[in-house]
Design a protein around this nucleic acid. Structure first.
Length: 226
DNA sequence: TTTTGATCATCC
DNA sequence: GGATGATCAAAA
């Protein structure tokens, strides 16, 4: 079965609500696909399953999953306490030709402008097939959140632009961090050194720390009480 | 236990 | 090779 793209935000949210509480086996059966024994060799399986269950557009393009709606879909693996188990990949970082990059025009800002977070149980003790989808959260950064994301981005982008990418570690950044994002440690991307000369360096990506995504989920309940 | 750095599948 | 989707696993 193939799910057609949702025509509106309301339709997308209705679908996300409809799969809340369902198991991954249920979604897989409906989409006529098998549940792998574990995620070791299928790390993107859950994300792809939820995308297809909600009718996300064709993948492999640097656009939001629902370009017409301007919404990015992210599954969030959560533990028994409902807290994220992992950080969240946002996008690749440009390491060359980065002159004049700004937060406002950055891919990071575009990706995070509007995100549909779909929590998915990820307790190791629960078989993949039995894990359930959680209550979705359509989110946009608050002014305070965006100010910090922007500061993180500007700091990291400036380091890249000035040629210090090779010495930037994942310790930098309050909400956003820069980490390797490649096929292996041997992967290389083009970057620039402190003299502006081309260098080959591991490709990097921007990630959201899990403390940040945990705060987003926690905030939902505060809002819901009002 | 948590976080950083490394890795896996698929598609074009 | 580089984009998408992420989680694994060694280190701290």
């Amino acid at each position: 079965m193939e799910v057609r793209p949702p025509l509106s935000e309301a339709e997308l949210l209705a679908r996300a609500d409809a799969i809340a509480g369902r198991t991954l086996a249920f979604l897989a059966t409906r989409l006529d696909r098998d549940v792998p024994p574990d995620l070791t060799r299928h790390k993107g399986w859950v994300g792809n399953l939820v995308e297809d269950a909600l009718g996300a557009w064709a993948r492999t393009r640097p656009e939001p999953d629902f370009p017409r709606l301007g919404i990015e879909l992210k599954t969030l693996p959560i533990d028994a306490a409902g807290k994220p188990r992992e950080s969240t990949f946002v996008c690749k970082a440009a390491l060359a030709d980065v002159g004049g990059s700004t937060w406002a025009t950055s891919t990071v800002a575009k990706k995070l402008r509007r995100v549909l977070w779909v929590p998915v149980e990820a307790d190791k003790a629960t078989p993949l097939a039995e894990r359930r989808v959680g209550t979705p959260l359509l989110w946009s950064p608050s002014a305070d959140q965006e100010a910090i994301l922007e500061a993180d981005f500007e700091e990291l982008a400036q380091l890249i632009e000035e040629g210090w990418v090779a010495s930037v570690t994942a310790h930098r950044g309050r909400y956003l961090q820069l980490r390797p994002k490649g096929a292996s440690a041997a992967s290389r991307a083009r970057g620039i050194d402190e003299h502006g000369a081309p260098i080959a360096t591991p490709p990097r990506g921007f990630y959201l720390r899990r403390t940040f995504t945990a705060a987003l989920l926690a905030e939902r309940f505060v809002v819901a009480r009002r």
